[in-house]
Amino acid sequence: MTSRSDALSDYVLGLADDALVSAQRMGWWISRAPELEEDLALANIGLDQLGQARTLLSYAGAVEGAGRTEDDLAYLRDDRDFRNVWLVERPQTDFGVTIARLLVFASYQSELYAALATSSDATLAGVAGKAVKEVAYHLDHARLWTLRLGDGTDVSHERMQAALDAEWPYVEELFTPVEGALVDPASLRAPVLARVSSVVAEATLQVPDVSPTVGGGRRGLHTEHLGHLLAEMQHLHRSHPGVTW
C-alpha cells in the first residue's frame, strides 16, 4: 500500500511522462516533415507537450518531497522509473502513424485535461486549464490530416488504415486504472473512443478490430524502444552534469 502522496506523485508522473515522451517523438520530425508548414506544426505540438510535461514534472517532484527538480526527473531516471503508456514511446517515423497516434493521444488529453481542469487539485487544474486549449489545436490538426489521408487516394487511404491498425492495440492502456488518479482513466474511455471513431468514420476508415496489448507503462514496464529514446534524450545531461549554455 503506497501512501497518498506517493500515489499522487506517481499519477502525476504518468501524465508528465506521457507528454514528455510524446514531445520527444514529435521532435524527431523536425527537418523531416513532408513540408515546411508541417515541420512547424509538429514542432509546435511537441513544444506544447513539453511545456505541459515540465510543469507536471515539477509538481510530481514537489509532491514527492525528495527535492527532485523537473530536470532530475526528466534526465536522471531510468526506463523502469518512467510511467508513460506504450502508445507514445514507440518510434513514429511513418507520417500516418504519427497522425493516427496524435488523433488518439490528443483525444485522450482533451478529455483528461477538461476533467482535470475542474478537479480539486489547484495545480493540476491550472495546468489542465491551460493545456486543454492547446490540445484542441493538436486534435484539430490530427483530424484534418486523418480526413485528408483517409479520404484521399487509394494509397493514402491504405496507409492511414495501416497506421490506425498499428496503433490501435495500444489505445486501451490509456484507460487502465491507476492508484491516486484524480480523474478515473476508465471514465475517459467512452468519450475518447467516441471522438476518435467519429473522425475515423468521416475519413472513410474502419475502427480496427484488434486485441489490446498488455501494456504496463504505468508500472514501469516498457518496450525496448523507450531505452533508446531516453539514451538520446538524457545523454548530454548525464555526460555533462550541470552543464549550461
Partner: peptide
C-alpha cells in the same frame, strides 16, 4: 502567466 505552456 505564460501564453502557452511551452512558451520558450
Amino acid at each position: 502567466t505564460p501564453t502557452y505552456s511551452g512558451c520558450p
